[in-house]
Amino acid sequence: MSVEKVTEARTLKIKTSLARQMAQPGGRTIADVERRANERLERHRDDVMTTIAGTITELELAAAAAAPGTEPQIYTLASSLLNTAGFFDTGPLYDAGYSLCDVADRMQTSGAWNWPTVGVHVQAMRLILTAGCKADATTDALLLGLRSVAAKTRQDG
């Protein structure tokens, strides 16, 4: 007869240096880290707003030319504006840019391009940027008008 030897499994907890460091008191709070990141980001606001103004100028030129074949450029520029504006609280400017992306995409897909619709969006974005991207009664009215234009584009497409 054979005798089996039974052994018990043991688990060992290994503490890494990172786990030891994280267990120590001190460090930064999440609120402090967020505040510091926002402060660093805010240092770039003026440069970003200059870039956004340049993109709006490019949109104005493209809309004024209304040249066949430049339609895809409108969506590209508007989405570039959104990518940049999304880092800051640009409120109504972001909303207007999003609306332009939406209508440009719909017009491109349907093949029914409407340059005045693009022009209205670009003018609204210029006004919003010039007013400091603040949400107020004027920008609310502009966005309401853009929603109306976008709804018309959806109906026509």
Results as ranks from 00 to 15, higher is better:
54 G>N: 05
4 E>T: 13
87 F>G: 11
22 M>D: 09
36 R>Q: 12
47 D>K: 14
98 Y>G: 12
108 Q>G: 11
22 M>H: 06
82 L>A: 04
103 V>A: 04
104 A>G: 02
50 T>H: 04
154 R>Y: 11
134 K>G: 02
157 G>P: 05
40 R>F: 07
100 L>N: 01
67 A>L: 07
44 H>D: 13
4 E>I: 13
69 G>V: 01
157 G>M: 11
106 R>E: 05
7 T>Q: 12
93 L>N: 04
17 S>L: 11
126 R>P: 02
14 I>V: 15
43 R>P: 01
56 I>Y: 01
53 A>R: 08
152 K>E: 14
75 Y>R: 07
155 Q>D: 14
96 A>V: 03
11 T>A: 13
17 S>N: 09
143 L>D: 07
93 L>K: 00
58 E>W: 05
39 E>V: 11
81 L>I: 01
152 K>Q: 14
42 E>N: 09
25 P>C: 00
34 E>H: 08
135 A>M: 13
94 Y>Q: 10
121 H>T: 08
99 S>G: 11
63 A>N: 02
82 L>Y: 03
151 A>W: 10
47 D>R: 13
23 A>F: 03
133 C>H: 03
149 V>N: 12
24 Q>N: 10
8 E>N: 12
42 E>C: 04
65 A>I: 00
68 P>H: 02
126 R>Y: 06
63 A>Q: 02
113 W>G: 09
44 H>C: 05
5 K>W: 15
109 T>G: 06
2 S>R: 15
24 Q>G: 09
136 D>W: 01
120 V>N: 07
52 I>S: 02
33 V>T: 14
41 L>C: 01
34 E>V: 14
143 L>M: 13
15 K>I: 11
86 G>M: 03
61 L>S: 08
99 S>D: 09
66 A>R: 06
30 I>W: 11
118 V>W: 02
138 T>Q: 15
121 H>D: 12
94 Y>E: 09
30 I>K: 06
25 P>G: 14
112 A>T: 08
9 A>N: 12
1 M>S: 15
129 L>S: 11
43 R>Q: 14
126 R>Q: 10
153 T>N: 14
3 V>Q: 15
151 A>M: 10
136 D>F: 04
6 V>Y: 10
87 F>S: 12
28 R>C: 00
77 L>V: 03
72 P>Y: 00
13 K>W: 01
13 K>R: 13
89 D>H: 10
26 G>L: 05
111 G>F: 05
132 G>T: 08
89 D>N: 10
34 E>M: 12
37 A>N: 09
146 L>C: 06
100 L>M: 07
23 A>K: 05
59 L>S: 03
87 F>R: 09
134 K>E: 14
53 A>M: 02
136 D>E: 13
27 G>E: 00
97 G>F: 00
105 D>Q: 13
14 I>D: 04
17 S>D: 15
66 A>L: 02
89 D>F: 09
54 G>V: 07
62 A>F: 00
23 A>W: 02
73 Q>S: 08
9 A>I: 08
122 V>I: 06
154 R>W: 07
121 H>L: 05
81 L>A: 03
28 R>T: 13
152 K>C: 09
64 A>W: 06
149 V>T: 15
128 I>Y: 04
21 Q>R: 11
36 R>G: 01
18 L>Q: 11
144 L>I: 00
121 H>R: 01
81 L>F: 03
120 V>H: 11
154 R>S: 12
57 T>Y: 08
100 L>H: 05
149 V>H: 10
53 A>Y: 00
107 M>Y: 05
39 E>G: 05
127 L>F: 08
132 G>S: 12
